[in-house]
Design a protein around this nucleic acid. Structure first.
Length: 267
DNA sequence: GTACAGGTTCCGT
DNA sequence: ACGGAACCTGTA
């Protein structure tokens, strides 16, 4: 699938902005296991080439139907956002699998990106399904049922630390049906957040990341330390004032603004 | 050896 | 309700 060059889609920005953890540089592009297959993406002359047999899936996953230029214009209200957009304007918000996103952001707690990626790969390698593509070996993300039967100590080789019991708690609640991840799709953000927070290790920040990156609740604005820092420094708004500030400033597009500002905050 | 990292939970006021 | 320490591990 070929996508002509657009200022609204940059692979490096999209994969590097912290919303996803399984895209890796490979050859002259990137590769990732999404669901049960390997997707590859690379920049080529005049655009982006995406290698995946299911075009409908690619369209949904990369959110290709949405007009990002229009969104960026709507939130481009001051010099701060304008500067952020210079280096981050090619970010797209990926529509990711809720279960994988849930576990990934439980792991993100008090952690850094390289180690988050390492832990997720270890879990996939140990408990996912092996697939081979172009002679390379990959692993799918483990199903809830595959983790639900385990004791937290079984995750020790993945070096999750104190998060191991949270991952198992999530797996058991999802595998048993106690938590229905699908049902969150049709809830508003506040309802969805309260359901997700029933899982140990899921607080406001982790829940908001899942709502934004898996359920496309674009008004949600996850507040991590970087965002708190940059909103404080550049807008002079304290932690407790962020929600009101964001609602007033970015309205229903808070999540997009969060990604642009976050990318900017990390240089 | 010590501090700290994209957060949550627990235990004090 | 609210603020601070602890949590597992890897890295500086």
């Amino acid at each position: 699938m070929f996508l002509p060059h657009s200022q609204d889609f940059d692979l490096k920005q999209t994969f590097g902005c912290g919303q996803c953890f399984r895209w890796n540089a490979e050859g002259d592009g990137y590769a990732c296991v999404v669901g049960n297959c390997v997707i590859k993406a690379r920049g080529i002359d005049g655009g982006i080439e995406i290698d995946c047999p299911d075009e409908d899936f690619v369209t949904a996953y990369f959110d290709l139907k949405r007009n990002y230029s229009r969104i960026k214009n709507a939130i481009k209200k001051d010099a701060v956002i304008q500067k952020a957009l210079i280096g981050a304007g090619g970010i797209r918000l990926l529509k990711q699998d809720p279960w994988e996103t849930l576990v990934s952001f439980i792991i993100s707690a008090n952690n850094n990106i390289p180690r988050i990626k390492k832990i997720i790969e270890a879990l996939c390698c140990a408990f996912g399904k092996k697939i081979v593509s172009d002679g390379r070996v990959y692993y799918t993300f483990p199903e809830p049922g595959a983790l639900a039967i385990l004791d937290p100590s079984a995750l020790y080789p993945a070096r999750c630390g104190f998060r191991d019991k949270y991952i198992i708690d999530a797996a058991r609640k999802v595998a048993s049906g106690q938590i229905d991840l699908q049902s969150i799709r049709c809830m508003d953000a506040d309802e969805g957040r309260s359901v997700l927070k029933q899982i140990a290790g899921v607080g406001d920040k982790v829940a908001d990341c899942i709502l934004l990156f898996a359920y496309q609740k674009f008004e949600v604005f996850p507040k991590d330390v970087w965002i708190k820092r940059i909103v404080g420094e550049l807008y002079g708004v304290g932690d407790k004032g962020i929600d009101a500030f964001v609602r007033e400033k970015f309205g229903v597009y808070g999540g997009f603004a969060q990604q642009y500002l976050f990318h900017y905050a990390r240089g």
